[in-house]
Simulated scan of single mutants.
Amino acid sequence: MDYPGFLQRLHEGISEPSGSGRHKQIITFDKPHQYRECLSYLRKLKPELAGLRQVQSARLIRALIAPFPAGDRLGKYHNGVTVEEDTRMKIHAETAHIPKAERNLPMPWGVKQVRAYKAWPSSTGNRIRIGVIDTGADFQHPDLRHSLGRGINLLNRTMLPYDDNGHGTHIAGTIAASNYDGGMVGVAPRALIHPVKAFDYNGAAYVSDIILGIDWCVLNRVDIINMSFGMKSRSKALLDMVNKAYHNGIVIVASSGNEGKRRSIDYPARYSQTISVGATDKYRRIAPFSNRGQFVDVYAPGEKIISSWIHGRYHEMSGTSMATSHVTGSIALLLSLRPELGPAEIKALLKRTATPLRLRKSNGRSSISTKLGEVDAFRLMQEGTK
């Protein structure tokens, strides 16, 4: 392969006026030696070809990520590489507002419902590291002072992953808030969250930023990755990166989506390497907005969840995003005591220890499901430590 020619074409495409539209493209190399050689030339040519300074690398899946004119697929240079058009995805949360009973704390109803407090005498998630790929986190929030570790801002690597949306802070609070004096407490209050800011203030991100976020989580040896977002289309590059994390022993928890679908869920939750999560209400019924069906592994509280918010505040949100954070915190409680457990073992334990759901019938009555369950943090820890 003509690597200098390939990189020259990449530089020219990046440097072209963007009147026709510009999208990032994910360029994956089929063979390790091709990727290594191309990286070597990339380092040499960057000083003289300014466009190449915008190229990012995802080493775990042998990929380069570059902004490129829409519709240009790098022509003859396809031999030995796979080029995938980058796509956008959104966070999985519905309306957000400041509730009237804003201080219905310190323990929100979801944390009570999963029985996390019963596990705390044995485990609070101590030293479990969680990568939350989201909108960032509010580092000044009093409930998160002891819960946030080093992270990364993929939108501006010179800045800390500060949250300018609120969604990431909300997720962080449910997982690991630890303000026992006047604030709120999350499912695993001694776990450590590493905020990975991939989403902008509108709650939108590119697949390529998710890939780079997972790459960072693997290289920084987190134990769990929380992914409260999704999209309708599948991405081979994202699947490859999820696979890398899975085979590195990282538990990946992903939300199913909020369209109320009965037979389909969003990606990446639909990948079998993840633990896919649907949302329930206070009565252990599937929330009307939650995607459901055979691809959902477990359900968790996701309707009218109060948690931390930017500027030191609290908001109420609904969505499978909120459900996912309850499952992530529950897994952290178990992993703190059994760090050797792998992703497949944890998924099986979650299903086995879940509390049966109530299903709505057409006549208005409800029945108990024998197949669908809501996460039970206490029972998960009990069974997982036998």
Rank of each mutant, 00 (worst) to 15 (best):
G329N: 07
L333C: 08
E303S: 15
P301L: 01
A269F: 01
A287M: 07
R234G: 11
S235M: 04
P301F: 01
Y283N: 15
A279H: 03
S290H: 06
E345H: 14
V296L: 04
D240V: 04
Y299S: 06
L372M: 15
S235H: 10
R365I: 10
A344Y: 11
T370D: 13
S233E: 13
D281A: 11
G319D: 04
Y267R: 03
L349I: 06
T280N: 06
M241A: 08
T355V: 12
G293D: 10
R263M: 11
V251G: 02
T370P: 09
S369I: 10
I252H: 00
V251P: 01
G373S: 02
V375Q: 03
Y267L: 07
G257D: 05
A344I: 12
K347W: 00
G373K: 01
Q294L: 13
Y246L: 10
S235G: 07
T328F: 02
T355R: 12
S369M: 05
R270V: 09
V296I: 08
V327W: 01
S256H: 07
Q294R: 14
D297G: 05
T280S: 09
R270G: 11
G342L: 12
T353C: 04
A287G: 08
A344D: 14
L349W: 04
S318N: 10
I306Y: 00
S290C: 09
M317L: 14
P356E: 03
E259Q: 15
I275K: 04
T353L: 01
G319I: 08
V253S: 06
D240N: 15
I252R: 02
E259W: 09
D376M: 04
S272D: 13
V298G: 07
D240G: 07
N258G: 06
W309C: 03
A354T: 02
R285Y: 05
N248L: 06
G293S: 08
S367Q: 13
V375N: 02
T274D: 01
G319N: 07
T324W: 03
R263F: 12
A354W: 03
G364A: 05
D297F: 04
R313T: 13
L333H: 04
G249D: 04
S264A: 14
R313N: 12
Y246A: 07
T274Y: 00
E303P: 10
I265M: 00
G249F: 00
L334T: 06
R292W: 02
E303V: 13
K282C: 08
D281I: 10
H315A: 15
A279M: 09
S307H: 05
V277M: 05
Q294V: 13
A269I: 00
